[in-house]
Design a protein around this nucleic acid. Structure first.
Lengths: 356, 356
DNA sequence: TATTTTTATGCAATCGTTTTCGTAAATTTT
DNA sequence: AAAATTTACGAAAACGATTGCATAAAAATA
C-alpha cells in the first residue's frame, strides 16, 4: 500500500553513489558527468522522485511560496486579481497561499504575524476595512520580507502599490452621472480608512464641485456593516430628499441598491440612476444593465505579482517607492442612460488616461 | 534595518538554558517547570518569535497545509467552496495552498505530481473538464496523502466525495420546466467526462421520459469550448427547431444563453424559459430574474474539509468509501414562470431531500 | 617526466525544530 | 536511612536537501 519513501538517499544507494552527487545531478550541476546525470535522471524519473520542499526550503532559506491576503474571496474583483497573481506565480514556479481576513483587523494582524516565520518569500496584500493600524505590516518589512499592496493600500509606508486610477475614474464616473442629468447624487462607500474609499470620495467631491453641485456630509453614506447600511439606504431612498443618482464605491453596495429598488419599486434609470465600481460579469444582463467602472483586476494582480517577484529576486533595489496605476474603464449602460427604456440601450466604452 | 534572526538558539542563549528546553517550554510540555516556561514565553513574546515552519515541518513530517485544486476561480460556486474550506482550515490552524487548473489536464497532472512531495498534508480537488485520466490521483493515494473530491468527482477510486444531489436536483429542475409548459427542452452542459455533467444529464433525461417527452442526442448540447458553444447555441436558438426551454448544467452556460437572447431579442420567459445550476448572487436582479438550482457551496467546502481533516488526523480509518451529498435548492424566478411579465414575479423555494 | 590544472565525486556541516535518551537533583516510598 | 521514583533539564540525533571543502583520478602543461 504505502510505498517506501523516495529520497535522495534512496537514489544514491541504488546507484551506488553519494547523496551529494545525486543532489547536484538533479540540479544539473556542471560538476557532474553527463553519464552520471543521465543515470540519476532516469532513476529519479522512474521512481517518481519529488524533492521534499521543506528540507529544501530550510536549507536554502527560500520557500518558493508567496502569500496573498485579501478581505474576501467571493468577489469578482478579487478573484480576478488572484487569477492574475496565480498566472505569474505559475510561471515562476511558485506556490500561492491564500488568506482571507473577512474584513477583520484581528485576523489580518494574526496572519501577518504568522508570515514573519519565513513561510513565504513575499506577501501581496489588500488591507481590510476595519482598521487603519499598520503596525503589523511594519513588522514584516523590518524582517525584510517583500511586500506589495494592491487596490486597498497604505501609501504612507514605503511599499510598492498597484491600484487603479481611483480618483480620476471616480471623477469621470461622477461627471457621467451629472451629464445624464443627476443633481442630487449619493455616494455610497466603505469606511474611509480605506485608500480606495478616500480617493473615490475625493474624485466624487471634486467632480460635484466642478459642476457647482452641493456637497456636504449628506452627499455620502458609509457602509460599516451591510445590515445597517441596507436600512440606512432604504430610508434614504424612500424619504422625501431621495437622491436622483447613486454612485457606489464597490460592487456589493450597488447590488444592495438594486435589491432595494426592486423591493420598493424604484425605477432605474427613470427615478434613480446607478453607477458602480464593479467587475460583475453579469452587469450587462441586470435589470437594467448596470453602468460600471470596471477595474483591470487581472492586470492588477499580474502587475502586483511581477513587482513582488522583482523584489524577491533582487532585494537590494533602492527605488522602493513604486506606485503603479492601471486605469479603469467606464462602461455606460442603461442604469445611467437618459430615458431609454429597457431593453433598448447602447454600450459605450470610455477609457481613461493612465498615470504612472 | 534587517534585524537579527530570532530562533530557538537565540532565546536559549539569552536565558542560559538549552535549546531543547526552550522548544519544550514553548510547546507547553509538562516536563518543564512553571518558572522556566514563564521566562521562555515572556522572552519569546518580547522578541516576537515565530517558529520556522519549514524546520518544524521537516522534523515532524507534517506541513499544516492543505492543497485545493480547482478548475477556475472567478466562479461563484468555487469561491464559496474555498470560503468553506478556509473556514475549517482556519479553525484547525492550517494553511491553504490554491491551485487553478484552468480546465487543463496537463496542469492538473503536474500539480498533483508536485504535491507528492509532502508539501501538503492533504488535498481537496475538483477535477478539470478536459480529461478523465485518473492516473495522477492514484499516485497521491499510493503515497498515503489524504484526498477528498468535491463537486466534480471520480467515484470509481475509493476516495471520499462531497457533492450535491445532482441527479435529483436536475430531475426536479427539469420537472419544473415541464410543469411550466416546456416541451422541447435543451440541456446544455460541460463535457460528459465530468461526474456532474453525467448525473445532471441523467436526471434531465429521466424527468423527460417520465413525462413522455422526446429525448435524443439533440436534447443536449455539450460545451467543449465557449466560442464554439456560443455559435452552436446561437444557431440552435434562432433556427426553426428552437427549444422552448433551456436547462444549463452550470452557471457560465446560462450567462451565454442570456447574452444570446439579449442580442437576438429572444424573450425570456415568453419564448424561452431558462433555468440553471448557479450560485450567482445577482440571479434575482437579472432581466429577467433567473431560476436557479443553488448549490450549498459553502457547506460543501466545509464538509469536504472536515472529512479531509478526519482523514489527516487518523489515517487508519477503514471506512474509506464515504460519499456525502448535500442537497441543492431550486429557486424559481421569472425566467421560468408562466407568462408573468417582469417585474412581477414571485420566488418560491423548493428544498429537495438529502441523501447520504 | 614532473607539475599543475581540471574533472568528478565524496564527506560532513548546515538549515531550525523536535524528540529520544540520559542524568543529576529533588522528592517520595519503604 | 536506603531505595525508588519523580522532576527538570541537557546532549545529540534526527528530518531531507544543499553546499563548502577535500581529494583521487584524469588531463593538460611545463
Amino acid at each position: 500500500m504505502m510505498s517506501e519513501k523516495i529520497d535522495l538517499r534512496r537514489i544514491a544507494r541504488e546507484l551506488n553513489i553519494s547523496v551529494s552527487t545525486v543532489s547536484r545531478a538533479l540540479r544539473d550541476s556542471h560538476e557532474i558527468s553527463v553519464e552520471t546525470k543521465q543515470k540519476v535522471f532516469a532513476l529519479a524519473h522512474q521512481l517518481n522522485y519529488v524533492p521534499n520542499p521543506y528540507a529544501s526550503s530550510l536549507r536554502r532559506q527560500k520557500s518558493k511560496t508567496i502569500g496573498v491576503i485579501l478581505p474576501e474571496l467571493p468577489n469578482n474583483f478579487f478573484t480576478h486579481v488572484v487569477n492574475g497573481i496565480e498566472y505569474v506565480a505559475r510561471q515562476k514556479d511558485y506556490h500561492v497561499l491564500i488568506y482571507i481576513t473577512h474584513e477583520q483587523a484581528s485576523q489580518e494582524k494574526a496572519l501577518i504575524r504568522h508570515l514573519q516565520s519565513g513561510r513565504v518569500d513575499g506577501v501581496l496584500a489588500s488591507v481590510c476595512a476595519q482598521t487603519n493600524d499598520i503596525e503589523h505590516f511594519l513588522g514584516l518589512i523590518q524582517l525584510g520580507i517583500p511586500l506589495v499592496f494592491f487596490d486597498r493600500v497604505y501609501e504612507e509606508i514605503g511599499v510598492p502599490t498597484v491600484t487603479t486610477n481611483d480618483y480620476e475614474a471616480s471623477f469621470a464616473a461622477t461627471e457621467h452621472l451629472i451629464q445624464q442629468g443627476c443633481k442630487h447624487i449619493l455616494h455610497v462607500c466603505l469606511p474611509l480608512h480605506l485608500s480606495i474609499s478616500r480617493k473615490r470620495l475625493e474624485g466624487f467631491c471634486a467632480a460635484m464641485k466642478k459642476y457647482g453641485l452641493l456637497v456636504d456630509s449628506h452627499s455620502w453614506l458609509v457602509a460599516d456593516d451591510m445590515e445597517s447600511f441596507y436600512r440606512a439606504l432604504e430610508t434614504r431612498l424612500i424619504g422625501n430628499c431621495a437622491p436622483d443618482g447613486i454612485f457606489a464605491s464597490v460592487e456589493k453596495l450597488a447590488i444592495t441598491v438594486y435589491h432595494i429598488c426592486q423591493k420598493r419599486g424604484i425605477r432605474i434609470p427613470d427615478q434613480l440612476k446607478v453607477l458602480a465600481f464593479s467587475n460583475l460579469e453579469t452587469a450587462a444582463l441586470l435589470a437594467p444593465p448596470l453602468t460600471t467602472v470596471t477595474q483591470p483586476a487581472f492586470e492588477m494582480g499580474k502587475k502586483a505579482a511581477e513587482i513582488l517577484f522583482r523584489k524577491i529576486e533582487k532585494r537590494r533595489e533602492i527605488f522602493e517607492e513604486q506606485h503603479y496605476v492601471i486605469p479603469s474603464a467606464l462602461i455606460a449602460r442603461a442604469s445611467t442612460l437618459g430615458r431609454l427604456s429597457y431593453p433598448k440601450f447602447s454600450e459605450e466604452h470610455v477609457a481613461m488616461n493612465a498615470e504612472k
